[in-house]
Measured scan of single mutants.
Amino acid sequence: MTYKLILNGKTLKGETTTEAVDAATAEKIFKQYANDNGVDGEWTYDDATKTFTVTE
C-alpha cells in the first residue's frame, strides 16, 4: 500500500510517499525520514487517506 507523509516543519515543508505492508511499517519509515531531516513534532494519522502528518 502507498502511504503519504505531510511535513509541516519549521524549516522543512512538503510531502513524500512510501510503499509499506502496513501503517506501522510506514510510520517507522516516515519517523526516520523526519528525524533525518530535523523535523520533530506532533504526529497524526488518517486511516481513511493513509496519510501521516507531522507538525512542529
Rank of each mutant, 00 (worst) to 15 (best):
Y3I: 01
A26V: 03
E42A: 14
M1V: 06
E56D: 12
G9D: 04
V54G: 01
A26D: 00
A23V: 10
T49W: 05
Y45I: 02
A20S: 08
A26L: 01
E15Q: 06
L7S: 04
E42L: 15
T25N: 12
G38Y: 08
E19T: 07
N8H: 09
T2D: 06
T18N: 03
D40S: 09
K13P: 05
Y3M: 01
T44E: 12
Y33Q: 03
A23N: 07
E15F: 05
A20L: 02
T18H: 09
K31V: 10
K13F: 07
L7H: 04
E56S: 05
D36W: 06
T2H: 07
A34W: 03
I29L: 12
T25H: 13
T11I: 11
K13M: 10
Y33V: 05
G38I: 04
Y45A: 01
Q32Y: 07
G9K: 04
T44S: 08
A23G: 05
D46P: 00
T51P: 00
D47I: 14
D47A: 15
T16I: 13
D22G: 04
E27P: 00
T51L: 05
D36S: 13
N37Y: 13
A20I: 02
T55S: 09
A23P: 09
A20K: 02
T18F: 06
E27G: 13
K28D: 11
K28H: 10
T44M: 07
A26N: 00
E56K: 03
M1I: 12
F30R: 00
T53P: 00
K13S: 08
F52M: 02
W43Q: 01
A26E: 00
T18M: 11
A23T: 13
N35M: 13
T18W: 08
E42D: 13
A23W: 07
Q32G: 07
T25A: 13
A24W: 06
G38W: 06
G14D: 15
I29A: 08
D40F: 07
Y45G: 00
Y33S: 02
K10Q: 08
G38P: 01
N8R: 07
E15H: 06
T53E: 05
V54M: 06
T11G: 11
E42W: 14
D40Q: 13
L7A: 04
N35I: 12
A48T: 10
N35W: 12
T25Q: 10
T55N: 11
E19Y: 13
T55H: 12
K13E: 15
D46M: 04
